[in-house]
Amino acid sequence: MAIDLSTRAPRTVPSGYRAGHLARGPRSWSARELLVLSWLAPLLFALAWEAVCRFGGMNEQVMPAPSAVLATAWTLVKDGSLFVHLGYSLLRAATGFLIGGGIGFGLGLIVGFSRLAEALLDRSIQMIRAIPFLALLPLVIVWFGVDEAGKIFLVSLGVLFPIYINTVLGIRQVDPKLLEVAKVTGLSLRGRITKIILPGAMPSILTGVRYALAVAWLALVIAETIATTKGIGFLAMDAREFLQTNVIVLTIVIYAAIGVIADGIARALERRLLAWHPNYAREERR
């Protein structure tokens, strides 16, 4: 016996259920929701830290509460000293980053394009990269004294290697099939470099930039232990002499905040320069 399906009651769709939901799977998170989630863990950590300091009997000389650190920051902002120290540190970091990044990128291009240059340069560069900053500090003082040049040299040296390594890696990882197609179509050497090799290497290069930004601040902390009277590192060293734990914690928070801002700038640069890349284009659409 045949059954007329047209007479059956239509299936009800649950409220709020959108068409195509099953095809897409779980709903995608918006950029604003992801941003809020990314700050959830730091906020919870700060609240827990405040609670432990207030109700857990934590000695303020050992670990001051976030509220005490904010009060110290406000005091330094009002007298203007915080901006002076921050300005000196930012100038040193930016100068060292530009010098070291430019040298690292140039060496990366030379070694990436030439096996002969790799044989001549790469081993020496890797040997220098293995030397810790602290081991170089006495020699840097002998070379440059305690002036700004020594501090900028240490930052430049730290920044150079991440950008160099990632530039070489990015160039070597370009798909050979694309280069073969470029040769067949008669694309010039300059066109192959600007239209295929450098765009293909750009994700790796920008990864090196993000890592180099973090290393720049690490090198700056060490550099500012050399005799100086200005900078966030000096502020921390001076606070240590007087057991001002709240100032020491404040400098750590400042370093962390600058690291987050620098990483955000690097991510924005990635989205702009890699808009052609499907992964970054997908992230832009979310």
Rank of each mutant, 00 (worst) to 15 (best):
L136H: 08
R172A: 07
G100T: 13
A31S: 14
F161M: 10
I110F: 14
R27D: 14
P162C: 05
V249W: 00
F113M: 13
E60F: 02
H85A: 02
T228I: 09
A262L: 11
A48M: 15
R190H: 03
W143A: 12
L34C: 12
Y88W: 11
Q61E: 12
L22W: 12
R27A: 11
W143P: 09
G16A: 14
S67P: 02
T225V: 03
L47Y: 12
R32P: 01
A256P: 04
A2I: 06
V84H: 03
R129M: 12
G96Y: 04
D263Q: 05
L160R: 05
I248P: 00
L43M: 09
K195T: 15
V52N: 06
V181Y: 04
L178P: 13
L120E: 09
S67D: 13
A257L: 05
T72M: 02
R286P: 10
F45R: 04
T167W: 05
F105C: 14
E33M: 05
E224V: 10
L98K: 05
L34Y: 01
A73P: 01
R210K: 04
L134P: 14
R18S: 11
Y255I: 15
T194V: 09
L70H: 02
T185D: 12
R32K: 13
A227K: 13
D263W: 10
V253L: 13
G104S: 12
I99V: 11
E148A: 15
T251I: 02
R190A: 10
G208T: 05
R129D: 15
A68E: 04
A19V: 10
T7M: 11
V215P: 07
S89M: 01
P162K: 02
L134S: 11
K177V: 09
T245K: 00
T194R: 09
V221D: 00
L44C: 14
E180F: 07
R24W: 04
R285V: 11
R32I: 00
R32V: 04
V140R: 02
T167L: 02
A182Y: 04
G80E: 08
H21T: 06
A219R: 15
V52P: 08
K183S: 13
R282C: 08
G100S: 12
L109V: 14
P10T: 06
R129L: 15
P203D: 02
K177E: 03
D263F: 06
S156M: 02
L90T: 14
I232Q: 01
Y88R: 12
V155T: 04
F153E: 03
I152T: 10
G231Y: 04
I99L: 14
F234W: 05
F113G: 15
F55Q: 03
F55C: 01
A2D: 11
A51F: 09
